[in-house]
Write a protein that binds this DNA or RNA. Structure first.
Lengths: 200, 200
DNA sequence: CATTTTCTGGACTTGCCGGTCCATTTTTGG
DNA sequence: CCAAAAATGGACCGGCAAGTCCAGAAAATG
């Protein structure tokens, strides 16, 4: 896996990943040909298969891994500091802005959607991302409970699960309608519910 | 579009659609070859292109249309009678059961996911389904407002949008994790929020 | 500076699968 | 019962894109 890689080599490799990611974001998974990646990154087939012996599958997986990390990075540091209602609000706004900016194609489409590769590796990338995401939200809920802003009888895990579902569905609908209405409504409803639950 | 179709013809045509739908549910969009459909339905290429001159695209669209209708039919009559809290609960249970039963592949994957055909026809199938779905939920909310079970200041449209997002996200997560936790949590959170809002 | 490894380019192969074509059989309708 | 239309079967074609191969350039190594 970690072959001897000269600086030039690593540069090319990451150029390929970045280019493939961009291509993927613009055109969607099944519209992207290896040839497109080559054209955009100025590389040859030899190079592609040199750095990704597993071919398209391996390249797609590398891109997905890269983009999955990015999803959470884009939410930081807000996602890690859900310690007050304004902080939650700021995170909410950031999420919506982030997905509005992102085009019509989910870069994780390669894995997330029905088309998603069902290989164990692909699954673990997705479940890993979702798990970390959900945990971060649950941590935020628990912190709010520790400060008394959210009622202690709330199940943090379930709340996080519900919020994550709302986000995923909101993004899915955004991808289809081009509007952020659903994402916003889902987040607002969830946050209102948590807020309201604080005062019995 | 509506060619002369003998009884035998219509039978074959619908056999093809049904078979393709089943194949799609079991194996997912990009794993299904025309050949698979032929094998399952006992038909030949000639027949496929006889009934679907537009080829795979047209067949997929027909299947999607068929399945989209089914999504709402499966929720009836419950979805049309959201007139009391027990009715909402029954609908919630039905939804979860329905999606638990359905395998790992969304029959609408052909359209819903990132892989989704971006043709106008495909978009209209999806947006049509989502729109009708959202409207039905909103109607339910409004009815509950008319009986005083939900506070009048609730925006029925936004509530419906949030609920639909939760459902979609829940199903997406179900497809990935095999668990209905997220779907259940999202629905429960939303319904609790609506219930709670009734008593200021 | 020699030689060994890595990197690069691109021509070529391969297999798959959607789509075409037409000959044959079955059904329709007068 | 006989045209005409519809339905069926399956051989064949063609293109596309993934993947292979190898020869040559550029770096590392000592």
């Amino acid at each position: 896996m970690a072959q001897a890689l000269t600086p030039k080599g690593t540069a090319t490799r990451s150029r390929i990943v970045a280019g493939a990611a961009a291509e993927l974001r613009e055109r969607g998974v099944d519209e992207v040909r290896l040839e497109d990646v080559m054209a955009r990154t100025g590389t040859s087939k030899g190079q592609l298969f040199h750095y990704f012996p597993g071919g398209k599958e391996e390249l797609l997986l590398a891109v997905a891994q890269h983009e999955a990390d990015q999803v959470l990075v884009d939410q930081q540091p807000l996602l890690g500091e859900l310690t007050s209602w304004p902080a939650w609000q700021a995170w909410r706004d950031r999420l919506i802005a982030r997905y509005r900016e992102q085009g019509q194609h989910c870069p994780l489409g390669a894995l997330l959607g029905p088309t998603g590769r069902r290989t164990p590796a692909a699954r673990s990338v997705v479940t890993g991302l979702l798990g970390r995401w959900e945990n971060a939200i649950a941590d935020g809920v628990r912190h709010m409970q520790s400060t008394g802003d959210i009622a202690p009888e709330v199940d943090a895990g379930r709340a996080a699960a519900a919020i994550l579902a709302g986000i995923q569905g909101g993004v899915l609908l955004l991808l289809h309608t081009g509007r952020t209405d659903h994402l916003a409504a889902a987040l607002d409803l969830a946050l209102d519910a948590l807020r309201g639950g604080a005062r019995p």
